[in-house]
Nucleic acid binder design. Structure first.
Lengths: 252, 252
DNA sequence: TGACAAGCGGAGGTTCATCCTCCGCCTGGT
DNA sequence: ACCAGGCGGAGGATGAACCTCCGCTTGTCA
């Protein structure tokens, strides 16, 4: 860090929205090709790292070590660190797209004519995504990595869910006392099922989301009134902030 | 370790704990008073340790270190280790009773005339216990500590739950496709809510258990059939075995 | 009251996981 | 055929948790 070499490959990770940087909205995994491209073998290795990292993050969560990734990619640790100074960068490179994907799901759900189906679809599709990618779930639920990105996404999703719930309530399909942040908590619960049954019954969560959805439906007129309000925005922010990724180390 | 000094302190025959230990089924927290009782101050300290440990386990889970406990009790680490050689012993001393308490809840629930109320009561009461004691929840859900004890408890609870569900199904209060192990998974989900909202809204879980219970009720005739069977015994055993207490260290 | 077994404290050795650097050797590309 | 760019991976740095050890203190009992 003593050598100021401004030419060095990796752009400053700190503020992505940097001013003059041509780096902006290029699909994840690509490089600022404007600068000198990597040597062929190096680029190959870089892809190898990304692939392996994607797999490991998906399977074990964001806490896998870069050393671990290097091993699985049959590369030296040095090679990994040369390309990605830390886990944050790797996470950034890999998850932008996936996070946006979640937003897209919300948009699609909001477009559904039948709001109940939209809601069911949204929960199902996101749960599928989370079940298949533990790292993604960790990010969306409050990991230290990718916090900003996740927050942005939540901000875009929020209004869509609000609208969806309002419409579903209006059509009489959804019980009246459901609040937007309930959706987030449901995802937390489903995440717990996924984690608990990981490697045993990857689809078990479908059973419980069905129960929960039936619990959310308006039926008879004797639905038990919900005690306790849902978390409000500040509550959920706080919870996300405190959340510690399972078995992960300190925040660093 | 290099100096062999056989003369030092310990006489050759370190009388082993002998065969007929009278230690057996005395209430947790008491000592084998048959042996020489502890000196007054020592016993006081011992209680101090137990009290502090109970609090810390409840609040932070079983992974707190003995050093941590010593600090909170204003005692030296040595004192703690002199009394409890490891966390397992401390956990044993503290949780036997509480685990049995859970069994008692199941028994009470099974005695309820109205099986649905019994079920609701059981889930509520156990969730209360878990919400108030993270360590207890960890044990019941699969921590490395107290595994045997928890397994015994589950064995006693199992049949009671089976009966309860059968009866509730018979009275038409419970949807037909609920299985005993669903109850365990519900506790896992509730545990996730508790943990997520810990220190923010200690009772938030009540909201979601209400949703889930409404989802379990027999209603109309259009309950969504549950996809996926529940975990079977071996599945749940496996899941419990794999479960890693959050942020905890290796199993040792 | 004095002697001493029992108890205490907590510094610090040990182990372990993770992070990340550094430098001698290798190789793709011109 | 040259060499900038790339590579490997041993190993130093850090920090958490564990647990021991021994000189000092204190309850207890005669």
């Amino acid at each position: 860090m003593t050598s100021p070499s401004p030419a060095a490959g990796a752009p400053p990770a700190t503020s992505p929205p940097a001013a003059g940087q041509p780096a902006a909205d290029r699909p994840a995994g690509e490089r600022p090709a404007a600068e000198r491209p990597l040597r062929r073998d190096a680029e190959r290795n870089r892809q190898r790292i990304l692939t392996v990292a994607r797999e490991l993050f998906a399977e074990r969560g964001l806490e896998v070590t870069l050393d671990d990734i290097a091993d699985h990619a049959d590369l030296g640790v040095g090679t990994v660190y040369r390309r990605f100074a830390n886990r944050e960068q790797l996470v950034g490179a890999l998850f932008e797209e996936r996070i946006d994907q979640i937003v897209t799901y919300a948009e699609q759900a909001a477009r559904q004519a039948d709001p109940w189906l939209g809601l069911v679809g949204f929960l199902t599709v996101t749960s599928e995504a989370f079940a298949g990618d533990r790292g993604l779930h960790e990010i969306m639920v409050g990991s230290n990595y990718g916090r900003d990105r996740a927050a942005q996404a939540r901000e875009r999703i929020g209004p869509l869910v609000v609208d969806l719930l309002a419409r579903a309530r209006a059509t009489g399909q959804l019980r009246a006392d459901v609040e937007p942040n309930d959706i987030a908590m449901i995802q937390v619960m489903i995440g717990a099922v996924v984690e608990y049954s990981q490697g045993i019954r990857p689809d078990l969560w479908r059973r419980y989301i069905t129960v929960i959805l039936d619990g959310l439906r308006a039926f008879r007129d004797d639905a038990t009134p919900l005690p306790e309000p849902a978390l409000d925005e500040s509550g959920i922010d706080e919870a996300m902030r405190r959340w510690r990724t399972p078995t992960a180390g300190r925040a660093r």
